[in-house]
Nucleic acid binder design. Structure first.
Lengths: 224, 224
DNA sequence: ATATATAGTGTATTATTAACACTTAGTCAC
DNA sequence: GTGACTAAGTGTTAATAATACACTATATAT
């Protein structure tokens, strides 16, 4: 094949990488793919890939995620741009990174063409990672925890309906601390972002819990 | 000249752009350069330029700033990465943007080779800007205002020594609101980041003000 | 009927934030 | 040197927000 793309000055490659978080089994989990090509073949990495020449950065992140993992329709924010000159052994690569949240019930994984395998890992059990992806994940994790304090971002991890105890548990996992039940309920209801469905959830040998849904499921608000 | 840089797939160009803020005449001002080349020749733009193939993103931002404006040694943070496919008419350009703060007294401007002119503009009087630089500036301005609430970033705009009234004025300008003098002093002194120099500043026909300095001039802390 | 397990609820305390006005120490004009 | 002027400097009170804390309710299981 001829080499059709020529430039007067050297150009770096640009990729997007996405740290996708979800909650399963009361654990915060992260979506990783096993790399099917060199470099780092066989190693685990964030889903992501090269920017096409006429697509938006956001679109690239979503497209690569879809192609590699089948995951679509999630909440995504730009995180940071990484560009250490030696972060990729092939060539100079600038990675515009994102983090994303998706409730488990919206999920259908399917290994795509680029990735040999797509697996959820609990954050406590991450394997060794390709490139500087561990650094990216740590930054995303930090940002996520911080944002629970002043935005409704955590709601993006909730299924269609849920109980207040389930919601509290999500906050506890994200912040990695126990919260007081009464204070949490007071706080979260004051946000005016939840409404009762009227239903109740029976879930063991005890009183059933009221079921709630989000009044604005697709919106993340700054609160305080 | 031969065209030496060839790739199998198209590569975007990568630039950094920096929104440098300072305070002069009780106004928040922004550093702009008049473009000496096409596109947007003669128009005003943020200092910035193309990433060299083996330099860090941060280094690139600092280097371009130095080359174009003579400004060095300032506080800088990555802001956001912009990549709309049509944001540059020449070719696909991804811009990793930064914002920076510098106290006026650390400043010596000198028009560099790439820029015809380097000028400080009050934020209220920005000219029409090249590319999507207005959008970048607005985002930087927002971030800066938000950060005054939970970090000591505003201190980076202060000269070596200053009075509490001067510091309060900086906060008022950044947040665009009046602050209560007693409450502000209580709050800022509780941060334990200021120390009295012992000196006093006579500055008009009234009682002279105590002079303060930062205990950690080069540190920006998260507070509250 | 009883044991058990989580859901659900209110009040008192403390800490933080907000509102508010007068005295002090200089300069300047006369 | 007296009085007018100007910004510096200083505390207290009230309102709001955050925290600590324990019992009752309602289901299931035996």
């Amino acid at each position: 094949m001829a080499v059709p793309y020529q430039y007067k000055y050297p150009h770096p490659a640009v990729t997007t990488d996405v740290a996708v978080f979800t909650l399963r089994n009361q654990q915060l989990q992260l979506l990783l793919i096993r790399r099917a090509q060199e470099p780092y073949m066989g190693q685990w990495a964030l889903p992501g890939g090269f920017l096409e020449i006429d697509e938006d950065l956001d679109s690239c992140a979503k497209r690569e995620l879809k192609e590699e993992t089948g995951v679509a329709d999630l909440y995504m924010e730009q995180l940071y741009t990484f560009g250490r000159p030696d972060r990729d052994p092939r060539e100079r690569v600038i990675s515009v990174t994102y983090y994303a949240l998706v409730p488990t019930d919206k999920l259908t994984l399917s290994a795509g063409s680029d990735a040999a395998e797509t697996v959820w890992f609990p954050l406590q059990e991450l394997p060794e990672l390709a490139f500087d992806h561990e650094e990216i994940i740590l930054l995303a994790r930090e940002r996520l925890a911080a944002k629970t304090h002043y935005s409704t971002i955590a709601f993006q991890l909730m299924p269609e309906t849920f109980t207040l105890s389930e919601l509290q548990s999500v906050y506890e996992i994200l912040r990695d601390e126990k919260l007081d039940k009464r204070n949490f309920r007071k706080w979260v209801l004051a946000l005016k972002q939840l409404e009762e469905t009227g239903g109740k959830r029976r879930n063991g040998n005890h009183r059933p819990a009221k079921i709630y849904r989000l009044t604005n499921p697709d919106r993340v608000d700054i609160v305080r």
